[in-house]
């Protein structure tokens, strides 16, 4: 497998010029910003990261962080103000057919032509790729079954629920069997079962050797399936790395649960304790001190129930970064 990144962005930036004067050519070079009249909004500021082939990459950030703007720049819907990006080893070039033929994309809160039925819908999107009618039909049937819409073939999209629209949106993103799949908030609007199905589908794509880049703020989903994540806040990259490294196992101390301790023995252990029924919960901050603490607790007549290294959740990091920005 080629080891060069399948997607990379370098110093990518986007500044929107808003207000009625914002449309005047050359305005964005002027150092003025007046709300409602001539306002400049820096949505993405010098973003750099790379996605490796075959990985599931989570792109996280609170609302307004610049996730969708970044994805739209990658998809050629918005022109970057500065910086560069490469997709599948080639510079970003909207309309580059060879590049686009190898990418699948689902936008945030998609809306589709409501007059189409599922097979017509996928045939329409498939028609934009160099696929024969037979290939399109076969692929459409496969995908509709895969996203759980095989029962709704005769129903026009206008009669679909939000979750069904999201599923058929994912199907259109996969119609061309893309090497790189870019999904903007794919779990949005889905119930827990629907989210699990999408997680499984994303995981299947990885098993097939495809790369998945997706944005989300459902951290539980991200934590379960991503190899690496990037956290962006206010258009800047705040964290980047494998989930395991980011959550830093042990960084929050080690939880020791001990039963059968009398009150004087608890005090003698010299650590704050929380009573949990007949047991006591202690948190030992220093990993090197855990063994000694466990021995002391046992010597004091305690019964060891569990020793659990604590870790920061992705949510802790996310909240910390969002508040700190």
């Amino acid at each position: 497998m080629d080891s060069s990144p399948i997607l990379s962005v370098s110093d990518l930036a986007k500044t929107f010029s808003l207000g009625f004067l914002g449309a005047v050519p050359g305005f964005r070079r002027l150092p003025i910003s007046v709300k409602g009249i001539a306002q400049r909004v820096e949505a993405v500021r010098g973003l750099s990261f790379a996605v490796e082939p075959g990985e599931i990459f989570g792109f996280l950030g609170p609302n307004g962080a610049g996730k969708t703007t970044t994805i739209k720049m990658l998809m050629g819907l918005i022109r970057p103000s500065a910086g560069s990006a490469t997709l599948l080893g080639h510079a970003l070039e909207p309309g580059n057919r060879r590049q686009r033929e190898r990418i699948g994309y689902l936008p945030e809160q998609p809306y589709f032509y409501e007059h189409l039925r599922p097979m017509e819908f996928l045939d329409f999107y498939g028609g934009l790729f160099p696929m024969t009618a037979q290939e399109r039909r076969r692929r459409a049937r496969e995908l509709l079954d895969r996203v759980g819409l095989g029962h709704a073939l005769d129903r026009p999209i206008r009669k679909f629920s939000k979750g069904m629209v999201q599923r058929i949106g994912i199907a259109q993103a996969l119609i061309n069997a893309p090497e790189l799949v870019i999904l903007d908030e794919p779990m949005s609007g889905l119930d827990p079962l629907g989210r699990k199905e999408i997680r499984d589908l994303i995981f299947d794509l990885k098993q097939q050797g495809r790369t998945v880049f997706f944005s989300s703020h459902i951290l539980q989903d991200v934590e379960q399936i991503c190899d690496r994540v990037a956290i962006v806040v206010k258009g800047r990259l705040r964290r980047l790395g494998p989930i395991g490294e980011l959550v830093e196992v042990g960084a929050q101390g080690t939880e020791v649960l001990v039963g059968g301790l009398q009150a004087p023995a608890v005090e003698a252990l010299r650590l704050p304790a929380t009573a949990l029924g007949a047991a006591h919960r202690f948190v030992v901050a220093d990993p090197a001190a855990v063994d000694g603490f466990v021995r002391a607790a046992l010597d004091a007549g305690g019964r060891l129930i569990s020793v659990t290294p604590q870790r920061r959740s992705l949510e802790d990091i996310f909240v910390e970064e969002a508040r700190g920005a």
Partner: peptide, 15 residues
């Protein structure tokens, strides 16, 4: 307005 175009322009098609 309905963002349908977001799913079409990223495909191999010129504007």
């Amino acid at each position: 307005e309905r963002k349908t175009i977001y799913t079409i322009l990223p495909k191999p098609i010129h504007r």
